[in-house]
Structure formats: structure tokens, C-alpha cells
Design a protein around this nucleic acid. Structure first.
Lengths: 203, 203
DNA sequence: CTGATTTTTAAACAAGTGTTTAAAATGAGT
DNA sequence: ACTCATTTTAAACACTTGTTTAAAAATCAG
């Protein structure tokens, strides 16, 4: 347990926690300062505004998010292994950071000001060669014909939504946290089976 | 174009628009009053607080949301037709009200105070007999064995997420609104095909 | 130790928040 | 025309908001 963080870092960590939990609109600079155990003015001394601090946190979340995804694609594996492992890893990542997709989507929805490095993001994914691997598999007839947008939608839907909608589904089905976690683990299997079966049909 | 709404209704309609667009934390009573073309005090005259007005709007959104889902289940159709039509309707509903699932999930996440009528919600669905229809189809071996929670997750994931994640996916893939709409319509087909294929495998 | 620099503090700022109040406008029934 | 309840208004309330300021404290270089 190293409390050897600089003031600046402590504030940023606190901001991460608070912003992820409550969103930009749902918290105040004072709340972030308190969470960091610091004076409010320090927030403005190190980061010039609430928005600027937010941008930093947002970008960091986005990067964690993308990094977790790209890792698998860079490996030297067959396409179907990559997708299988991707789902596995995504479920793992999201059970540790379930708030991230909702946070990102919500904040982007509420203002375009979330200046995402658009080009960089697609560059990151594209540079792994995953797209070419897809196209090739499609040409060989191993994989169903499906544009890359739909492919993204399909996989992300089934990985993100079960974590994002946890509070809704727990409420609807009256499930405890543990019960829901069990369902998530089961669901990972189903999703993998379904997606693999759909993308790579055995003739 | 009937402007024949009572003051109370005008405020509620304005609140719906504003809350859905910006969330509870993202707007003020004055903003709602302004949107309705009314004095702020009227918001408090008709609804005793911002929270109370919000609860009303939230409940209404939840009801629209559930009603759209239950309708299909009540019809006199085979299970696979019901699911097929459900997906169709859900995509239609969400292309008209894309903010609803994100709104509901987000607000439930940020406070349990969203006193959802839990029992009512499941009652609504259960009373259509859809669950029995599922269990029967499973016993007959027509449908894959899958608990109802996973079934819900599976279908909602693929219907809700593409609409919720629109701003993220448009950003990532650099798509115009129209282009994205086209992708959505295509995606509906893919999702239907995939889910039907998975749930009702042809032996 | 000293003087300059960096870091931290408490206090203040104007603007915006949810909410209340008390008076004005409105309209129906006598 | 007068009464009384309902509806609408402008103004005020206490408090929180993002942000700044000016001084105090801590740090560090020579």
C-alpha cells in the first residue's frame, strides 16, 4: 500500500473514482478534492478547471478501454481464437471495471466535447491487422460475410451490455450481486458459443 | 399540432424531453420551466420537487419501455415468431426513442431511488405466458436450454446496445447519422438471424 | 540562514441551485 | 360587482457551484 503519490496524482486518482461513479454532472470539484483529502484550490492549481481534469480522466478511461481490446488482436493467433479470447478478456476486464463502457457512452452522448482521438483509436485497432485477417477469412469462406461495423456492434453488444445493464437486470430479475456474477460467467459461455457459431458456421 | 395541453402536462412533457436528453444531474428546474415556457415556481406548484417530477418521468419512460416489449408477447403466436417480431419491434421502438435504455440504466445506476415497481414489471411480462412458452419449447427440444435471465440478456444486449452506443460507434467508425441508420437496419437482420439460429438450431 | 519559489490554505467571488413566499392575475358562482 | 378558490408571477431564501485571490506555509537553492 504505497501512499507515495504526489498531490497531483492523488487528485487525479480521486477524480477518476468520483467521475466514474457519478459522471461529470453528478459531482463537484469540492467532492473530488474531499475524496483526495485536499483543498479545493489545489484542483485548480494542478488542473486548470473541472472540465480539464475531466478530459484527462476521460482520455485515460478510453485508453484503458481500448488497450484491453487491442492486446488480443496483436497476438499471433487464428482469427477464431482471437475472437474467442477477446470475449473472454473483455468479460474479465469488465468484471473489474464495469462502469467504464457506461461512463464513456454516457459522457460522449451528453457532449461532443469529449474530444476522443478518433483517428488514433481506429489506428490502434487497424494496426493489429485484425481487419485484414477478417477480410481474408471471409474471402476463404471461413467466416460469414459481415461488414466491420456490424462485427464490432455484434461483439461489443454481447460483452458490454450485460455489464452495463447490471442494475436494471438485477432489479428486474431480483438477483443478488453473487447470483448476477454467476449469470455473467455462464453468459460468457453462451455468448461465445453463439457468436462463434454465427461467424464461423460449420458447413 | 394541438397546443391544448394543460400547464401541468406541458411541464411534464418538457421535463421528459430535458431529463431524457441531459439526465437528472444534467439539468435544473429552471431549464425545465424554460423549456415548458413557464415560471419556475409552477414546477413546484404542480410537482412538489425536482425529484418528484423526475420520478414521474422515469416511471413513464419505464412503462413505455416495458409496454413496447410486452405487447408482442401477448399475441397468439409461436415462440420463434414472437422473438423474431420482438426484435423487429424493439429496433423500431428504439429508432424512435433511442435515449430510453441509456437513460433508464444510467439513472438506476446512479441511485436506487428510482423506485421501479419491480414486482409489477416481472408480473407484466410473466402474465403474457411467454416464460411458460419458453419452458415448453425447451422441453420439446425445439429451443436450446437457456435460463430466462440469459435469454433476456441475450436479446436485450443485441437490441439495446447498438442504439445506446451510437455516439461511440459513430465516433469510432466515423459514420454519418444516415450511414449509422443504414447499419442499424442491416444489423437488425444479422441479430435476428444469429439469435434465431442459436436458440432454435435446426438439427 | 536567506531569499526566492513552489505548494497549500482559507476566504472570497459571482452565478446558479432547489425551493418558498407573498402578492398579483384569473375565473366561476353568487 | 363582489367573493373566493385557483393559477401564475416576480422576488427572495439559503446554499452549492466553478473559479480566483492573496496570503501563509513549506520547500529548496546559494
Amino acid at each position: 500500500m504505497s501512499t507515495e503519490l504526489s498531490t497531483e496524482e492523488k487528485i487525479k486518482e480521486a477524480a477518476k473514482r468520483v467521475f466514474l461513479a457519478k459522471g461529470f454532472d453528478g459531482c463537484s470539484s469540492r467532492e473530488i478534492a474531499k475524496e483526495a483529502g485536499m483543498n479545493v484550490a489545489l484542483v485548480y492549481y494542478y488542473f486548470r478547471s473541472k472540465s480539464q481534469l475531466f478530459q484527462l480522466v476521460f482520455q485515460a478511461a478510453m485508453e484503458d478501454f481500448m488497450t484491453a481490446m487491442v492486446e488480443v488482436f496483436s497476438a499471433d493467433l487464428s482469427l477464431d481464437s482471437k475472437i474467442r479470447i477477446f470475449i473472454e478478456r473483455e468479460f474479465d476486464f469488465l468484471s473489474k471495471h464495469p462502469e467504464i463502457p457506461g461512463f464513456i457512452i454516457n459522457e460522449i452522448t451528453r457532449k461532443e466535447s469529449c474530444a476522443v482521438d478518433k483517428i488514433d483509436m481506429m489506428e490502434m485497432v487497424a494496426s493489429t491487422g485484425i481487419f485484414q485477417q477478417c477480410l481474408e477469412a471471409q474471402r476463404k469462406g471461413e467466416m460469414i460475410k459481415l461488414d466491420l461495423v456490424s462485427l464490432t456492434m455484434l461483439i461489443l453488444s454481447n460483452c458490454h451490455y450485460p455489464h452495463m445493464a447490471r442494475p436494471l437486470l438485477q432489479e428486474i430479475h431480483q438477483l443478488s450481486d453473487e447470483k448476477y456474477n454467476q449469470h455473467l460467467m455462464l453468459h460468457k459461455q453462451y455468448v461465445t458459443e453463439m457468436i462463434m457459431g454465427y461467424l464461423f458456421p460449420k458447413k
